[in-house]
Nucleic acid binder design. Sequence first.
DNA 1: TTGTAAGCGTTATCAG
DNA 2: CTGATAACGCTTACAA
Lengths: 346, 346
Amino acid sequence: MGSTPSRRRPTIEDVARLAGVSKGAVSIALNGHAGVADTTRARITEAARTLSWRPSLHARALLASRSFALGLVMSRPPELLAADPFFPAFIAGVESVLANRGLALVLQVVDGDPQTEAASYQRLAHDRRVDGVLLTDLRIDDPRFDWLTELDLPAVAVGRPAAGCPFPWLDTGDREGVRQAVRHLIALGHRRIAHVGGAPGYVHSAARRRAWEDELRAHGLEPELFIAGDFTGQGGAAATRQLLGSKPPPTAIVYANDLMAIAGMAAAVEAGLTLPDELSVVGVDDIPLAAHVRPALTTVRQDATDWGRAAARSLVALVEGEPLPTLTPAPVTFVERSSTSAPRAH
Amino acid sequence: MGSTPSRRRPTIEDVARLAGVSKGAVSIALNGHAGVADTTRARITEAARTLSWRPSLHARALLASRSFALGLVMSRPPELLAADPFFPAFIAGVESVLANRGLALVLQVVDGDPQTEAASYQRLAHDRRVDGVLLTDLRIDDPRFDWLTELDLPAVAVGRPAAGCPFPWLDTGDREGVRQAVRHLIALGHRRIAHVGGAPGYVHSAARRRAWEDELRAHGLEPELFIAGDFTGQGGAAATRQLLGSKPPPTAIVYANDLMAIAGMAAAVEAGLTLPDELSVVGVDDIPLAAHVRPALTTVRQDATDWGRAAARSLVALVEGEPLPTLTPAPVTFVERSSTSAPRAH
DNA sequence: TTGTAAGCGTTATCAG
DNA sequence: CTGATAACGCTTACAA
């Protein structure tokens, strides 16, 4: 009593004084290092608790040249960002890992421009704003590999990189999901199965296309009905109209994401088709709406939250210098709903 | 030549040495303060450029007790997170402001649990991880107002708080959008207009409900067909089925978001109704899919990106001690598509 | 076993 | 107008 309770937050000095020891002793004791008597350690711990002292993040950062934060740069045209179910779910997974470790997530959002994107990583690195970054939406010949190597910033990639990835990566296995989807359609009796791909340049777009091709060929079918999409509803609808114009038209279409698939269904209905009888449709993602459109969308579900957890765990291990955990993200699952059925003639 | 180009990043000391001045002079010169000769300043600037020196963020943070970062805590059940178009768009807007200012965005994601949420803000504050936070999804009797006051963390709220908000806030005017929607339906000839509300407890849920009530009453109609929703597709479909069971059923339904509206349309179609003839539907958000479902969804578009920009600008001003800019976020716009028409009997 | 002191890279103060 | 010097709060050698 008597003394004004100072509004200033307690420093290690205060703890030392209260415990009757030196700053150094406090540091050693509270970091669990050897070199201080048990009784003293107890006294120090008690003092710290009394003052509810917590070491200053900034001081530790300065000393250790670390940020205790991880970075994620989302590089997309705004239009695509809002539509993407991956992003929030992925972040939620990342956070669940970081929170316990006292790490934070620094998020940067840039439009698709490579200049801006490069600058974004540069800022992160130069300011030592983060200790490492998560790489999503891998591209073919991804320029970020070089940037980050140059910037000396650790990274973990989400997805199976096309080639020359100097960082650890975790295989999200999207290929298998699309293969299952195609297999399912073939089993239903479909022979003319088209694919509306994702935006070109992305590794996952290529992987999905490849999976579609491979599975068709594995059943002696020729993959010819392909249109490159852009992951937007607009693009999905346009691609669908184009495909329906081919002679003969496909009886089933596999889209690289749900947004294109749902827009595609609308376009098909508008063209006078009955779904799924005259056209079966499969998407990828399993967005919350997928189960609530009519017909309910058959799709390939990705567990983005789990991927976020896995990626974060890996990156944490990497920057902390711990051994890398085994990287086994949750597999995709094929979800059959009502947008697929055996093909029936008009 | 001769000396190994050290891998260590240059400090202000290096710049001072190269320019032949003291550290203090460098600081003054490079921060544009008065007290150094023009020629000296030029020499120092040149030296800094040569070494491509950039002040250490960590050192500045330690000294100034600042983070040069802003925080955003998203508190939602995972299910809702993935479906929300607001979140990515809002962040994009925030980022566009922060990037130029050399500030970063620290993102925290927690499930809906208040305990976890409180802990999240606590960590942010105790670690001085951020200089201020953005508050979205305002709740009625929002507990965060007290937490943040207690934690002494500056904040800016997005939306019009119910009451007692100790922080600056910006009015997103969702009320007006819903009123327009209801007015539109009334003009089309609807008299039994129902509302499927958002999750209870949110200020925007209450505001939308209130707008629906007010506009109906303003036209001499009684707001009786109301069901509290939860922003999910599941909830939207269930509410719709319930409403369609009332006698007589509504001829139009205004939903608190697009996800519920689209799921509601599917439920209505499944119940045998023809849309929009037998049921008009309006949503809120204008998600990318809204224009691509059939019938295309009439909705109230919100410019979340602009709100993000506005909120960030305010919070930056607040933490930098600048005068608060006038807060005028982009107004919502009513987007008429094909899911609304004059009511026609079965 | 404990205390002392140097250093991380800035910025601000205060003599010169 | 300049240039030492002291903080900011912590960790970690090293000395006692």
